[in-house]
Write a protein that binds this DNA or RNA. Sequence first.
DNA 1: ATGTTGACGGTTG
DNA 2: TCAACCGCCAACA
Length: 135
Amino acid sequence: MPDRKPPALFYQKVYALVRRIPAGQVTSYGRVAEMIGHQGAARQVGYAMSALKNRQDDPDYADVPWQRVVGHNGEIRIKGGAHSRSYQAELLQQEGVTVRQAADGGFVVEVETHMWEGLLPHEVDRLLAGLSSGR
DNA sequence: ATGTTGACGGTTG
DNA sequence: TCAACCGCCAACA
């Protein structure tokens, strides 16, 4: 059952910012939280990513590049089993991101070369200005 | 209003 | 080093 209610404001902020991550680069849950002014809310950013799977057929949210958000150390943290993690790794590799496979079978993005610099505070302000009112 | 739930991140032993 | 804790805080029941 897809979720057709509009997402809560916090989620909208997360999605708006994640859409700005350039292809071929990544950022972390914690950095997303910090940039939108919710320092320490990294887990909630992950929760927002998880909620996207209920909106796959909603054109307003189907284009959010969720695969570009990883753990602060580059670790792929998506739940849903090994298949989901290898899928995220595959999507990233397709856009040119270096992903290594760790000894334990997990995947780790090479953050040293692919970490996104992020947006400046005033750029975030502009991006998030007047959310909540529209879709 | 209150308790539970996490696609986190930092600390501890 | 690495696993186990534990604080975090918005959403949701």
